[in-house]
Design a protein around this nucleic acid. Structure first.
Lengths: 200, 200, 200, 200
DNA sequence: CTTTAAGCGAGACGGTACGTCAAGTCTTCGT
DNA sequence: ACGAAGACTTGACGTACCGTCTCGCTTAAAG
């Protein structure tokens, strides 16, 4: 450990390790898309990636950790904060979420497995919480923005409202199995978004 | 088919079959709650239920079919409709749900497993839908009642509102892993329940 | 049990029992020929014979007893005592045995299984002994005859000689797996059969 | 293939593989002696040997191949050739065999299983032949010796006589289930062993 | 000429073993 | 020294038969 290590942090990582890591995560993502989480096999990841099973186990504790890692690899780019009235921006955001829940986005395909795993294992629950809040924070940010510019009441519990807006979308998608259609989103927003404080 | 057939319909089901069926489904639900869908093994169901593996396979094609059948047994008894102002009745209902999500109610323990299984198999998804809607209908019924007695606006989409009220409770419990506490429920109701139409 | 029962012994056997018995033994023999003893299953016998498994178990204790019974069903007809010199008659008999051991006679095909089963179970050993001695007695009878007519020494241990004559045939067929060919039989007889007592 | 290959031939066999192999074959022979071929179970071999079932299947295709391999391990050490008159030496040898057949020598306990397996599979039959001939060759060697020193007729078919001498012992032990007692051996030898050529 | 008891088929039951597969660990070798 | 290769133990899979056991139905006999 020398001084410059501090600044370059990971400069001297064994290139083989990095190569394995990339190949394995790539294969994992491919397979997740093809067979889903439930049928994903470490054996198959090893075969597909050309990396030995033992190497995979050396770097990841198991399927869950591997998938979690792969998931992290695919952080969504935050969309730039758009201008316009809050109601419109919220609607856009929720329609985007609704479309993802309906579609075959592989990240969403992992949600049931994530929820299930969260119920059994606190570490996964932490991951789940992080992901959930990261997703939610986009909605909350817009709402906070609305409060800031006076389009929404000052005393609004924006966190709670964000959950109330997204809750039905996930609930219907995952549990009711009757997903909210994008064109139902405006009705949802209209129902839940408080009227702006009357400006005298 | 004669008239008396109606009354005897299933009279001649082999009692052994029924006995096995009950024991197996009971054990399945127990285990689903304990280890989840992913780690549920037929072997364990056999051991827990005292029914031989071969007997299980004689009646169910595999894990999925078994679990589907088991979930069907989950139906809850409807509580009697209570009197009082709508806001209060809704709040009571949601607090009850919130308490269940927090607690260790075995039906709730099975929810993650149910969601996970639903994602893999349309038949289970149908079961999930039935259960979800049965649960939701209690809330919707109260809201409909509120509309009927004029405590809520006539044009209210009660189904959507029911989802918006219960959504956050399940979402936070299952996904956010930061369950709604019963004492947060009144705030939720206050935030989402529309004011009664002003009575002139 | 009345007096005349004694004389009619089996007269009043339920015809259904006899019908089952015949069908089952017939199917057993068929299957023995097709798949051998090792792969014979009671399930298959039931299917082939159209007789229910439970009925089979009602009459026979298991596979071994069933096969033993079937075996008994096929008692060989004793060939008529032929005339001629003893050496010739012995040779004929042994050539017949040698041909059976070489061929695919199903009775011989069961011998390995019989020997194996005999080693594990005294009851089967008794069956084996009976069959072995029944087969051997044909040879011994001829030898005894030879002693009687003076073609063989009076003090001859005919039992032992019978075993010495048949022994190599079975031993080579079953253990050496290099069966005695029929044309080797005369040499065997010549080697082992004592010369007739010199007649002064 | 060069010279030093001979010495190193199998040097780099994974020691774990060899360890498994030895343990499994040993357990197999033990069990063959105890329960026979028909009731031999791979599951039991795994349990007895402490080697996992999957490892057994990795190395052997099934029961038959396993048993074949195990029988190969059965080779006996040749006893040194003893001096003395041929009749005496033959008698000693046969009494030894007779004692083994009566006793509980584990190799003999496997004979029924070996015969049974031989009947079902040519590869095992080859093993059986090898073992049979190895055993027989001890007797034949003495007889050949007798011919060489002039105690037995020059034209004697020693192989055939060896079979005739051992045949009854095995036949009575395995099939008749009335084993030749050691004290019957001299009679057998006296009956079958040709008189020495009269020395003028 | 009906009872009555047997023999019957159907097939569910608890089991054992099969042969396969993946999980996750551990050992050996080669670079 | 570390990664690749792959053998190892473990345990569940889903299948096939085992031998036992009700069940009603049919059928032969005995009253």
């Amino acid at each position: 450990m020398t001084v410059q290590d501090v600044s370059t942090t990971k400069v001297d990582i064994d290139p083989r390790v990095e190569r394995s890591r990339v190949q394995v995560l790539h294969a994992t993502l491919e397979l997740l898309g093809e067979v889903g989480y439930g049928d994903l096999t470490i054996e198959a990841v090893a075969a597909r990636s050309g990396v030995a099973k033992s190497t995979i186990y050396r770097h990841w504790k198991g399927k869950l950790e591997l998938v979690t890692d792969a998931f992290h690899e695919m952080k969504v780019a935050e969309p730039p904060p758009a201008p316009g009235p809050v109601a419109q921006r919220v609607t856009d955001l929720l329609m985007d979420i609704a479309r993802n829940v309906i579609g075959t986005d592989w990240r969403v395909n992992c949600l049931p497995a994530l929820i299930e795993a969260s119920a059994r294992c606190p570490e996964v629950a932490d991951v789940s919480r992080d992901l959930a809040e990261a997703g939610m924070s986009r909605v909350k940010a817009v709402l906070d923005d609305g409060v800031a510019v006076g389009e929404l009441p000052a005393e609004l519990d924006t966190m709670l409202l964000a959950d109330a807006l997204t809750g039905p979308i996930f609930l219907r998608g995952l549990f009711h199995r009757r997903p909210v259609q994008p064109d139902e989103v405006p009705g949802l927003v209209a129902l839940l978004l408080p009227s702006p404080p009357s400006s005298p």
